[in-house]
């Protein structure tokens, strides 16, 4: 197909008008002011609510790209879990991170009763996590504010997955920056948005093929059976008519 033929086809059809509209829209879109207006309000910001039971604080929230709420349990060993709060992502936004990767919000975890300069283990568990979920910590006072924390993964019952990491009082993950027996960790679970979006999409596209292929097989089998029934019925009918 050469370009000349393509242009003839387009000219011959009324879709020329539609093409013009597309070009105009594209031009409008890529002007920066229109882009800002276009992005609009972020309607999917997770809004966690918290409940405390014993030494575990549970956050309940609807993560980005989900309809149903999930729960994340926070606990601390080697100190006392004081509180867990949500933190607006805007306050921690940096060019090196993408808000879409933090689908289940940012949290501020505060612990006390730590021996000054000592270590605590912070754990978060949810059936929303999997082995590829990472935990990133934000420390506004550090030279590199965002860091991926080395975590240990563990599968618990009921498909719950736990991540645990160590925080040193006054260390790089402690936002208060002081070895004062108190620890403040700002961070949240992170999943690669694009890996998820494209991965799940490819699976689902082939899923549509799978569904319709299964229906195709079902129809083929049913057709085979019915064609046989119909032909045997048709063979019986003339015999009965003859008799």
């Amino acid at each position: 197909m050469d370009l000349k033929r393509l242009s003839q086809l387009i000219r011959a059809s009324k879709s020329k008008m539609v093409l013009c509209v597309v070009i105009l829209m594209a031009t409008a879109l890529f002007s920066s002011t229109s882009w800002a207006a276009f992005i609009g309000e972020d309607l999917e910001i997770p809004k966690p609510t918290f409940t405390t039971e014993g030494e575990v604080v549970t956050a309940k929230l609807i993560p980005r790209g989900r309809n149903l709420s999930i729960q994340i349990d926070f606990a601390v060993s080697g100190g006392k879990l004081e509180s867990v709060e949500g933190k607006p992502f805007a306050e921690a936004e940096r060019p090196e991170v993408d808000i879409k990767d933090f689908r289940s919000a940012l949290f501020v975890v505060k612990a006390s009763g730590v021996s000054p300069g000592g270590e605590v283990k912070v754990s978060s568990a949810s059936n929303y996590f999997n082995a590829s979920t990472a935990f990133w910590v934000f420390n506004p006072n550090a030279s590199t504010p965002w860091t991926e924390v080395p975590v240990t993964h563990e599968d618990l019952d009921n498909r719950v997955h736990r991540m645990e990491f160590t925080v040193k009082d006054g260390g790089p993950l402690d936002s208060d920056g002081r070895a004062d027996g108190q620890i403040t960790v700002i961070g949240g679970p992170m999943d690669d948005f694009w890996a998820y979006a494209i991965g799940t999409l490819v699976i689902r596209f082939f899923g549509v093929f799978l569904v319709l292929s299964v229906l195709l097989i079902g129809l083929k089998i049913a057709s085979g059976i019915f064609v046989k029934i119909e032909s045997s019925l048709a063979a019986k009918e003339p015999a009965e008519t003859k008799a």
Binding site: V208, F209, V211, L212, S213, L215, L216, L219, K220, S223
Partner: peptide, 9 residues
């Protein structure tokens, strides 16, 4: 029924 595959494509 093989037209089902077209519907998927």
């Amino acid at each position: 029924p093989k037209t089902l595959i077209i519907g998927a494509g």
